[in-house]
């Protein structure tokens, strides 16, 4: 009888852990073996194959205009920009805030912050994006603010949870051998919490790719433009291209997040 040995990802947060990592999978191959790059290569090949197929499938004038390679590339690049800028902004907000809120003196406030975060999380993204657009007008930065407002919560939650689950005996031991609180934080707590924090960042990245597709509703570009163009002009190839490229981008970013989590996690954990 084989015991289910691998610790499963926390069930409460879908997408927070590595999805379906086979039990006992070797961690070493990253960066050393071609197999680590099979997934992203597959995604890129699939994207290229789709574009080749669609460009050669007898498009009409409207479709050709919306699917011109340079236009699609521009939209993809806008999408990547939105994702990258908002993810960086999320990290800049969530990490310091999470660290601050996990200090001993702030712990009584933790449930309150998490409750507020939960309520915020239940606001529909599209509603938040449109509300901000009504308040501040449309544009790139409005969308970034909306994406950040939405993406901060999971990253913040994982930072706090990650830091809180560090065994207090270890931080005490750190203090006991004469480390300053800052050194304990930097050399004991953060390294031990890093797998959970990195899982949160990965979730944020994937979330941002998906949410950025909503940017097209407030004229901030991105691949969502292809979907909305496809729907309004009733051109299925345009619509499908937008969907396929967003999904592929999300998979690519998920792989990126997973690889980063594996490379950055301290050895010995």
């Amino acid at each position: 009888m084989s015991a289910p040995a691998a610790p499963r990802p926390a069930p409460a947060a879908p997408g927070a852990g590595p999805p379906g990592e086979p039990a006992g999978a070797p961690r070493a191959p990253v960066g050393r073996s071609w197999r680590a790059f099979a997934a992203p290569a597959g995604v890129l090949v699939a994207g290229a194959a789709w574009m080749l197929y669609v460009e050669n499938s007898g498009l009409d004038a409207i479709e050709r205009r919306s699917l011109a390679p340079h236009y699609v590339w521009e939209k993809t690049w806008e999408h990547v920009q939105l994702t990258a800028v908002s993810t960086l902004a999320v990290l800049a907000v969530a990490l310091p805030l999470g660290i601050l809120l996990s200090r001993a003196w702030a712990r009584p406030g933790t449930p309150i912050v998490l409750a507020v975060a939960d309520i915020g999380q239940s606001a529909p993204t599209i509603g938040v994006v449109v509300l901000l657009a009504v308040a501040f007008g449309i544009g790139f930065w409005t969308t970034v603010v909306a994406l950040v407002a939405y993406g901060v919560l999971p990253a913040l939650r994982n930072t706090m949870v990650g830091l809180q689950q560090v065994d207090p005996a270890l931080t005490d031991a750190g203090r006991g051998i004469g480390m300053s609180p800052a050194a304990v934080l930097a050399r004991v707590e953060l390294p031990l919490a890093s797998p959970v924090i990195l899982a949160g960042i990965r979730t944020t990245l994937v979330l941002m790719v998906g949410t950025a597709s909503i940017a097209s509703f407030v004229s901030s570009g991105g691949l969502g433009d292809l979907i909305t163009t496809g729907v309004t002009t009733q051109r299925t190839p345009v619509l499908l291209t937008g969907c396929v490229l967003i999904a592929l981008l999300a998979l690519l970013v998920d792989w990126l997040g997973g690889t980063a989590a594996r490379l950055l996690a301290p050895k010995g954990l």
Binding site: P18, G210, S213, I227, V244, I246
Partner: peptide, 10 residues
């Protein structure tokens, strides 16, 4: 997990 990465709009 993979299906989860497909955005709702898509």
């Amino acid at each position: 997990g993979v299906a989860f990465t497909v955005p709702s709009l898509a």
